[in-house]
């Protein structure tokens, strides 16, 4: 295969790691060394406080990503790292939107919220702030709908994922 014909995609990784200082550095260096950008990153303690779960979304070619996964699994502090991009798993992300919203357009904005099952968390004379959870695609769609209003601020948690049923992530 000629150079430049690499398959670029967005990948969702789940890592089970030691809950210790420095672990995040070791992990991000595996990406940065290869010039790979991390699109989103979620780290939190698991049910066992000795371990953390990391969910990382990163874009790039699949071959480099496979190398990254192998190098991640090689780290002593990484119990396992896996790419869930092509598996049916539960995926969620939360976003807060703060949009320009005066009384004239409020009904329209709230209708959009309704359609996306978003919840109003703050309201002022000029703004509307809502929270919504769902897949990345749903949140992207909602962002498109809000753009004409003027998005003042947007914050996303990054994707979290979990295997379905009894399967361990």
């Amino acid at each position: 295969m000629a150079n430049g014909m690499k398959e670029i995609g967005r990948h969702s990784l789940s890592l089970y790691v030691s809950n210790k200082p420095g672990v995040l550095n070791r992990i991000t260096q595996v990406f940065s060394r290869r010039g790979y950008n991390i699109d989103s990153l979620v780290v939190s303690e698991t049910q066992d406080p000795r371990f953390s779960r990391m969910n990382i979304v990163a874009s790039g070619d699949r071959e480099t990503l496979e190398q990254i996964l192998k190098q991640l699994n090689k780290l002593v502090d990484v119990i396992h790292a896996k790419d869930y991009s092509f598996e049916d798993v539960i995926q969620k992300e939360l976003v807060l939107f703060k949009i320009d919203c005066t009384a004239e357009v409020r009904t329209e904005a709230l209708q959009i919220c309704d359609a996306f099952k978003a919840r109003t968390v703050d309201l002022s004379a000029d703004t509307l702030t809502v929270e919504v959870t769902g897949t990345t695609e749903k949140l992207d769609a909602m962002k498109t709908m809000f753009e004409p209003f003027g998005i003042r601020e947007l914050v996303r948690t990054g994707k979290v994922l979990m295997a379905r049923g009894k399967a361990a992530t």
Binding site: G22, N25, R26, Q29, R33, V76, D77
Partner: peptide, 11 residues
């Protein structure tokens, strides 16, 4: 630690 992460097996 920070300086040497990329050049050690573990630290």
């Amino acid at each position: 630690s920070g300086i040497t992460y990329p050049v050690v097996k573990h630290s």
